[in-house]
């Protein structure tokens, strides 16, 4: 499998309290990679390091075959980036912003830009400073899509947008990906949104990558089990026990990762009674994963 983004042994430090240590991340080519993490986990910093906006203290970053930040211009010409905070020049009109942006990208597609303008209902003559949050979000996505990039890096692109705008943005993204076979790297803390569109997920917390795996594995692999007569300690388990909490009537709630159906035999082996297996959605799984990462399992 080839990777559009490869990060190895990345170390970055900012100030006294924040660091990214030993980060290894791989974004498969053609995938939609959801980058999850709570606020302050280091997602934006990782993205900035990936795109050469920041320089790491050590480690290696390769994007689209180019080493970053050394080959930034060549890589960025094929990369569309929507940052977390709006970064466009507010004194320009929509039309001027398009003309300015297009001047830097040889792959700029005016025809498609005009189509997107229409479908996003953006007025060319509007000043960027007067656009609503939703309109600005749409414009930023329009700019990167009209570039026809091979890699799209989106940092919280739908944060603060209403459902209608979010739908428009995600639809346009998916349409682009289906046409171009581009790779999308999208970071968000809106887990349920990524659940629908991403096929890979990476979870970051406190400067560390907690997990990186296909989305279906992540979703299907984390279960909540209700276990009666649970053994203490759990011993060797075929799955990863993320947490266990006592419940009423001697029934414990276990959260496990890597669950597969045949693993019920384990409980039979230890004399426990598996009462229930509950699927967790991505958000619940994400929360449990983080909780386990932050507190050693009991």
């Amino acid at each position: 499998m080839s990777h559009t983004v490869e990060i190895r042994d990345l170390y970055y430090r900012a100030g006294k309290n924040f660091e990214i240590r030993d980060l290894a991340l791989n974004v498969p080519t053609g995938s939609m990679y959801g980058f999850l993490g709570p606020n302050g986990a280091g997602k934006t910093t990782t993205i900035r390091l990936m795109l050469g906006l920041l320089r790491p203290r050590s480690g290696r970053i390769t994007v689209l075959g180019g080493e970053m930040p050394r080959e930034s211009p060549r890589v960025l010409s094929r990369t569309g980036y929507v940052p977390e905070q709006p970064h466009l020049y507010l004194s320009l009109t929509v039309d001027e912003a398009l003309r300015y942006h297009s001047a830097f990208y040889t792959t700029w597609d005016w025809k498609w830009a005009d189509e997107l303008l229409g479908s996003f209902h953006l007025d060319r003559t509007s000043l960027l400073g007067r656009l609503s949050k939703g309109e600005m979000g749409k414009l930023e996505v329009l700019l990167v899509l009209a570039q026809r990039p091979e890699l799209l890096v989106l940092d919280e692109p739908t944060d603060g947008l209403d459902p209608v705008v979010r739908r428009d943005v995600l639809t346009a993204l998916l349409e682009y990906v289906s046409q171009q076979n581009a790779t999308v790297f999208i970071s968000s803390h809106l887990v349920h949104e990524l659940e629908r569109i991403c096929d890979w997920v990476g979870v970051m917390d406190r400067g560390r990558l907690v997990a990186e795996l296909p989305m279906h594995s992540f979703k299907s692999g984390i279960k909540r089990l209700r276990v009666a007569n649970a053994p203490t300690p759990a011993g060797d388990t075929p799955f990863v026990l993320l947490s266990r909490e006592p419940g009423g009537s001697g029934v414990e709630t276990w959260v496990v990762r890597g669950w597969q159906a045949p693993m019920t035999q384990y409980f039979e082996g230890v004399g426990a009674n598996l009462r229930d297996v509950v699927d967790l959605d991505l958000e619940e799984g994400f929360v449990e994963l983080l909780r386990t990462f932050r507190v050693p399992r009991s």
């Binding site: 795109l51 050469g52 906006l53 930034s72 211009p73 060549r74 890589v75 960025l76 010409s77 094929r78 990369t79 980036y81 940052p83 905070q85 709006p86 970064h87 466009l88 020049y89 507010l90 004194s91 830097f104 990208y105």
Partner: peptide, 20 residues
């Protein structure tokens, strides 16, 4: 001024050498 306001993110993410 405009780049300062945006903390130079736009400028730094453009596909050209920084000195350029």
């Amino acid at each position: 001024a405009a780049d300062h306001r945006g903390r130079h993110v736009y400028a730094l993410s453009l596909p050209l050498p920084r000195w350029h």
